[in-house]
Amino acid sequence: MPGTDRLVRGLGTAALPALAAAAVYGWTAWCFGSSAAPSDTVAVAVGAVLLLGACSGYFALVGGTGGFFGALLLSLGLLLTVTAADQAASRPAVAACAVREVRTKAEDSAGEGSPPTRTVYRLLLDCPGGYPAELKEGRAVAGKGDTVRVAYDPRRRISPELEGRTKPWTAGLWAVPLLALSATIAWLKRGPSGRYED
């Protein structure tokens, strides 16, 4: 039945963002947390294939301007999904580190109406065992000579963070509406003939 086929295809395409996010999150979490995880090169290559494949498939199924903007929203949602997986990854070791030096760098945004200049604080650390050697923050968290507690992964698969700083739900909360909007565009673009139309 044409109507049933159209409904199934519409549901399948609208479900693509959620399925892609689950696949990307699962792959990223496994790469960060598993003792049998692949090398960084393989992890990044497979992650890129998942992300590009999902966005290309979405655009091919939906097409037109809706497909372009939906794929763009999908890519942003998937990148935030990777960020959420990174922030949720276990950093089981904690070290009390002395701040040897603090370097700041202003990062300008290009274009009119762009966000204001952002300052990145790079803390050079003296930690027991020599790792981690540095920590990057978006705000001033300590000065030279201070001691900070840093949570890190001894296998060095994920970047260190201040102890208690990681909040994976923040990136997840941003990812959900982007993925939902991408799914909504896919659902609304269904044409009466069963083909996606502008």
Rank of each mutant, 00 (worst) to 15 (best):
S35P: 13
S35A: 15
S35Y: 06
A36P: 03
A37V: 04
P38K: 14
P38N: 14
S39V: 09
S39W: 08
S39A: 15
D40L: 13
T41Y: 06
T41D: 13
T41E: 12
T41L: 12
T41C: 02
V42T: 06
V42F: 14
V42I: 10
V42P: 08
V44T: 02
V44E: 08
V44Q: 13
A45K: 00
A45G: 01
A45F: 04
V46E: 00
G47T: 07
G47A: 02
A48G: 02
A48V: 00
V49Y: 03
V49F: 02
L50N: 02
L50A: 00
L50F: 00
L51N: 01
L51A: 04
L51G: 01
L51R: 03
L52W: 03
L52A: 05
A54Y: 03
C55Q: 12
C55F: 00
S56N: 06
A60F: 14
G64P: 02
G66M: 06
G66L: 12
G67D: 13
G67S: 04
G67N: 01
F68I: 11
F68C: 07
F69Y: 11
F69C: 14
A71P: 11
A71F: 15
L72V: 10
L72Y: 13
G77L: 04
G77Q: 03
L78T: 01
L78H: 05
L79H: 11
L79G: 07
L79K: 10
L79N: 04
L80Y: 10
T81H: 05
T81E: 02
V82Q: 10
V82W: 12
V82H: 09
T83I: 12
Q87V: 10
A88T: 12
A88P: 01
S90K: 07
S90P: 11
P92H: 05
V94S: 00
V94N: 01
A96G: 03
V99D: 03
R103P: 03
T104S: 01
T104Q: 02
K105Y: 06
K105A: 07
A106Q: 10
E107V: 14
D108E: 11
S109I: 06
S109P: 02
A110G: 03
E112A: 09
P115Q: 00
V120N: 05
V120A: 11
Y121H: 15
L123I: 12
D126K: 15
C127E: 04
P128F: 14
P128C: 09
P128H: 15
G129T: 12
G130W: 14
G130C: 12
Y131D: 04
P132K: 12
P132L: 08
A133N: 03
A133W: 11
A133H: 13
A133K: 15
L135V: 06
L135M: 00
L135N: 08
L135C: 00
L135S: 01
K136R: 15
R139F: 05
A140V: 04
V141R: 05
A142Q: 09
G143S: 08
G145L: 08
D146A: 13
D146T: 07
T147H: 09
T147F: 09
T147N: 07
V148G: 12
V150G: 13
V150R: 10
V150W: 10
V150L: 11
V150S: 11
A151E: 12
P154V: 02
R155Y: 10
R155F: 10
R156P: 01
R157Y: 01
R157T: 08
R157H: 07
R157P: 05
P160L: 04
P160C: 05
